[in-house]
């Protein structure tokens, strides 16, 4: 197996773990952690394809991963701010109990 396939398999496994966490956990913060794991798995794919691609000197995959890290940081800040706001409103971070759209 080529090294690239190994990295892609690790990224696929990490993505699936993150997806399972986002879909099965009850706590909103754990859902955000799962989403972060999925974003990181995508970043690993970008870097792996950049490393084994035909033109690494063009830096395309590396730049995409760096911008993706920046966007993920913004997403984490806003997502955790939303969790705190919802906790203050509903006094729980349990997603199974947040079953109303009306405030």
């Amino acid at each position: 197996m080529s090294p690239l396939a190994g990295f892609l398999l690790v990224a696929a496994l990490l993505f699936s773990i993150g997806l399972a966490g986002a879909l099965t956990r009850r706590n909103a913060i754990l859902v955000l952690i799962g989403i972060e794991l999925m974003l990181n798995a995508a970043n690993l794919n970008f870097i792996a394809f950049w490393r084994y691609g035909p033109h690494p000197e063009a830096l395309t995959g590396m730049m995409f991963a760096i911008f993706s890290i920046a966007v993920a940081a913004a997403e984490a800040a806003v997502g955790l701010g939303l969790v705190i706001a919802i906790y203050r409103h509903a006094h729980t971070a349990d997603l199974d109990q947040m079953n109303r759209m009306k405030g």
Binding site: L9, A12, L13, S16, L19, L95
Partner: peptide
Amino acid sequence: VFSRTWLVGLAVAAAVFAMLGWAVLETA
């Protein structure tokens, strides 16, 4: 700590991993 519908979520994640893994191994 898991949601009531955890089995569905696990099945979706397993299906996604099966598809991604198949695609990687097919092109390996």
